[in-house]
Design a protein around this nucleic acid. Sequence first.
DNA 1: GCGATTTGACCGGT
DNA 2: ACCGGTCAAATCGC
Length: 265
Amino acid sequence: MALSTPTAAVLELMTMGQQSALHLGELLMAASPPMEGERGQALTAEILRCCDRVIAAISGGAAGTKRKATMEHGVLMPSKRRARGAELSREVRSGTTADGFMWRKYGQKDINGSNHPRFYYRCAYSAEGCGATRRVQQSHEDPAAFVIAYYGDHTCGGGAGDACQRGAPPLPPAIIDSNACGMVGFFDQYQNVESPQPLLAAEQSWRHYGEAPGQTSRGRWSSSSSSSSSWEAERGTSPVSEFLEGSLGVGWESVVNYLGFTDLP
DNA sequence: GCGATTTGACCGGT
DNA sequence: ACCGGTCAAATCGC
């Protein structure tokens, strides 16, 4: 495999990484008991997502947008409204809403047939043109889990690093233990948490979702006891680094340095 | 005062 | 017409 440029090399390796992660996920599902298999799937999803982000950062990859055009200031602009079910780039089931990116909440709705409201976030750097959004909803089966759907890619990185993640390096996957209360051990491993209390940072990041909300008029929920900020960013060591080093022989640092993510720990 | 969040209203796809 | 997604004014917290 002759790769002419570092960019091509990283893209090629990331693509290989995605394929390997998919394969790994299949193997885990086949070889593990159901619960372990689910953890494996979540980990696989996280690896794929990280690979996607690296690829997007390298290729400057704005996701294809197929929003309806509208007039704005006399200029034809694509509609900000997303067609239902369109552009979903990834759906992740996680024990925390924090994923290392910085998001700003812009809406909340209760959804037909669901006991839990759905929250809408866009990248905190949307003003700089980043079109990434996500939709967060508590899992119906397991209220301790969040189903997070990502739309679009983060394009706010520019050349000098991923602005979405400034001060907020990738968070490891939060894996839900199916018996309701939460995190399982290897999450702590990534958090360097030795104490028995689980994942304070993650809990704090959930806080603004509030207590059990009461429904109000048309599609609304009463306000939660929100914290002053919805910036959702936490620190951690991504399993991707282990994946890169273990499976691909590529050091996370080298990828990070190449991409200019100089402020990662 | 400023920036973030909340939430009623609106838009547009199905 | 219904419903999910987004907008934007009001509100809140620092």
